[in-house]
Design a protein around this nucleic acid. Structure first.
Lengths: 188, 188
DNA sequence: TCAATAATTCTACATTGTAGAATTACCTTA
DNA sequence: TAAGGTAATTCTACAATGTAGAATTATTGA
């Protein structure tokens, strides 16, 4: 079914028309307003277009969601050099968790992307924020894994049991983590 | 549709018949063999029973999966008192992660259960393993959150990008975490 | 003996993602 | 300028899924 007996076939190209960008933007809005990944049908309905039109721009739903994920990197905090590393790492973590919480339906997609996604960017910026500590590369790697997977786990908990947990509950464990990092910088 | 024109209505009670236990056990086997949560139809097919028969034992699929989760607690390592806390915490974490990895389709269910599940049990046994450290309760709580959510995040990554990650990749970050804990026990 | 209740199958539906074909507009080249 | 190819769209259809509701048959308690 379509959007109400619209004329079939390619439309005249005067109107703005469909585009990958419009699709993604609309998907993003729906994701935020419904707080879950929209069905292709509801997405198509919002765009006043037949479902199958979406398939002209993306091979399948997963690809569409990946594309959406790629647009989210701007929400990841960019640490400033020269600032307190704890503060910068806290801001970075908060922004990333906020992003995950706002798009919790995308967690799976997020994690299955190997590059160019927010997870990747988080990793890069983590390194920047952590530079002042001058840890060796192995420790940095482990610290990153611990933090990023922790944040993913936190987001998952937030998603699975909403109400039982809130963003503020990040502070305690994050502080604990940061303390551990700090102790490591200055071995007695 | 059923299992091929089986006689309708309640069956004679000589045979073993269906039960919540049989359903859960079969679901568990399918979960392991297909490496994903089975559909109710495939589950019913294995049990040679109509799909709707399952609804006599569970109000819905989520409840069935929760019940399954409850049977998994036996897979969580029980720390022994008097042993090295690092070793015990490592064994505990490994066993829990293994459990999560073997049942990754259940992550969501796992986290939405408020009690009696493996997550709960992990928490309790974490406290036991950590007793020798004599941390104050706030630090214990933070340490637990950090670890458990980390493990959930790790399991999610394992699930979303299989092949990119393996269980051994736990060791680095876990060691990092344990070092942090150790530093905290003996403040200089 | 008979009514209630337990355990089951059958039919049906809404929702989802997606394949394949038909339709119409646009663009290039002869 | 006509024709053939390609781009962008709608339509129809299907399979998979969870689940509601009713029909059917056995068991049990009064």
């Amino acid at each position: 079914m379509a959007v109400k007996g619209k004329r079939r076939g390619r439309p005249v190209s005067s109107q703005p028309g469909l585009s990958a960008e419009r699709i993604i933007e609309q998907a993003h809005q729906l994701l935020l307003s419904e707080a879950r990944v929209p069905s292709l049908r509801s997405l198509a309905a919002q765009l006043q277009v037949d479902v199958m039109a979406l398939y002209h721009y993306f091979p399948n739903k997963a690809a569409l969601l990946e594309a959406l994920c790629c647009t989210l990197v701007s929400g990841v905090y960019q640490p400033e050099a020269g600032q307190d590393w704890r503060q910068e790492l806290t801001r970075l973590s908060r922004s990333y968790l906020q992003l995950l919480a706002d798009h919790s339906g995308l967690l799976q997609t997020l994690l299955s992307m190997t590059s160019a996604g927010p997870a990747q960017v988080f990793g890069e910026r983590f390194e920047q924020a952590l530079a002042p500590l001058a840890l060796d590369s192995e420790q940095r790697q482990q610290a990153l894994c611990l933090l990023v997977d922790y944040l993913h786990g936190f987001a998952l908990a937030l998603h699975a049991a909403p109400g039982a947990l809130s963003l503020e509950d990040l502070d305690g464990p994050l502080g604990f983590y940061l303390d551990g990092l700090a102790l490591r910088r200055a071995p007695s």
